[in-house]
Write a protein that binds this DNA or RNA. Sequence first.
DNA 1: GCTCTGTATGTCAGTTGTGACATATGCTGT
DNA 2: ACAGCATATGTCACAACTGACATACAGAGC
Lengths: 105, 105
Amino acid sequence: MKEAKEDRLKLAGWRVGGAGDFLDLTPEEAAFAELKLALAFYLRELRGERGWTQSQVARRLRSSQSRVAKMEAADPSVSLDLLVRSLLALGASRADVGRVIVRAA
Amino acid sequence: MKEAKEDRLKLAGWRVGGAGDFLDLTPEEAAFAELKLALAFYLRELRGERGWTQSQVARRLRSSQSRVAKMEAADPSVSLDLLVRSLLALGASRADVGRVIVRAA
DNA sequence: GCTCTGTATGTCAGTTGTGACATATGCTGT
DNA sequence: ACAGCATATGTCACAACTGACATACAGAGC
């Protein structure tokens, strides 16, 4: 009954291996950006699995649709705290979060 | 040559399995606290391995000794962002951070 | 006892992150 | 073309975090 296959994680313009390859980032900054990006994509994936809209997720997180959109886009204005808390609130386990980080691009 | 065995991670008053067992935290809050605590301990461990003082670490992070102390204590006033950025700056890899989270208490 | 070094705790002004709102873009069905 | 829904982007008042400083505490060596 749940047709949660509709989204497919656009993958818009990510042709390169990691995040921040074409910007002059220090190794730490690059690693941090990759980490954040991986969690952002995972958030979108989780939401897709659940078949929810950004607005539904926002309600669940007591946040707003626009902030959810920014989270999934790994916008500079979203913190790791918010990202991780959101994943946990969507049902991911602490270990799930860790695994996503380990396997990040 | 490196006698980095001297610290031993006090483990002060942590007798229970996870963090926040005796406080009324929701599962997400508890998972988040555990995650943060695990990273905090890892920071202390890394610093111990390197044989550095909090002040030395602070200089390296362009922060202050007091903030480093708070990081290691998983003080509510420190963000995951700061914790993770600091670990990366101390030489931990993205995967190291992920593994620590996976294995958190 | 005192001093020195390292760590912990409290406070605060400046910076950054947050939710909310408005608005824009994109897509699907009609 | 238009309406309706989902998502994206910009802005802003308010809340949270940050580095710095002062100060307190703990232990080692004298």
